[in-house]
């Protein structure tokens, strides 16, 4: 029994271990061993195939222009901003003027998955995921004479958090709901849709910051605070 185990452990040199020379590596016995080893190798590969990582990236308006020189309050005309940066992604009227907003976004999600070589369980993988995004925003407020009143810009890195899940082994899908930051900058095809919204949102429409007459909102802002709290989001 011990001898047999030792022979199996000799692998390719099995005939050499028996004392034969030159070793007959292609004998029926060694071929069986090769097949067994290859099967083991395939099993390991299968386990590896059940493991893996995935990277999802979403970029919005990455080629946004930046001002070459800082603009001066009270001097810079809105035409200067439009000439350099182009049309803003959002514009809103204000009581004594108007405001432009430029935004860009880069969302990155990374997943690491692995499976266990246990029957039935090996059809599922355990996934650990992490996501974050870079957000760039510039805001320019003008008076009725088209002169810059205030401006501000910021590059911010946000962590969307970590997550774990169990998925079918061949599933690759995002684990983070990034719709709050990915929504179109201007919902230009959704104007009539407000009639179908829940009643608090429809009633808030006149003052809503989506209409372009009552202010602006940055991406990713939670709808539970400020003006949108009137819409009673759950």
């Amino acid at each position: 029994m011990n001898l047999q185990k030792r022979n199996e452990g000799c692998s390719l040199m099995v005939d050499g271990c028996r004392g034969g020379w030159p070793p007959r590596v292609f004998s029926a016995f060694s071929l069986t061993t090769i097949i067994q080893q290859f099967s083991t190798y395939l099993a390991v590969m299968t386990m590896l195939a059940g493991s893996g990582c995935a990277m999802n990236r979403k970029k919005l308006n990455q080629n946004l222009a930046f001002p070459k020189q800082p603009y001066a309050d009270g001097i810079t005309h809105s035409d200067d901003v439009l000439d350099e940066l182009g049309p803003p992604l959002e514009i809103s009227a204000l009581p004594h003027g108007y405001v432009f907003m430029y935004e860009s976004l880069d969302v990155l999600e990374f997943q690491l998955g692995f499976s266990l070589p246990i029957p039935v369980i090996n059809w599922f993988k355990f996934v650990v995921a992490q996501a974050d995004y870079d957000h760039h925003v510039q805001i320019y407020q003008f008076d009725d004479e088209h002169r810059l009143i205030a401006s501000g810009g910021e590059d911010t890195h946000f962590d969307l958090g970590n997550s774990t899940a169990v998925q079918p082994i061949l599933t690759v899908e995002a684990m983070f709901d990034t719709s709050s930051v990915e929504n179109e900058v201007v919902s230009f095809v959704e104007w009539p849709a407000f009639c179908l919204l829940p009643l608090p949102q429809t009633l808030n429409r006149a003052q809503s910051i989506d209409t372009g007459t009552a202010g602006l909102e940055q991406r990713g802002t939670a709808p539970f605070v400020g003006q949108r709290s009137l819409e009673m989001h759950k």
Binding site: L48, A49, S51, G52, C53, A54, M55, N56, R57, K58, K59, L60, N61, Q62, N63, S78, D79, L82, D83, G86, P87, P88, L89, I91, L170, V172, V185
Partner: peptide, 30 residues
Amino acid sequence: IIWNTGTQTTEYDRAMFFFDKKSILRKYCY
């Protein structure tokens, strides 16, 4: 399978025209 990656890029092509009270163009930009 072992390594999966995906990228989606969204761009906005925009044009803007400002008109005065008489609907005459004051400013435009792309």
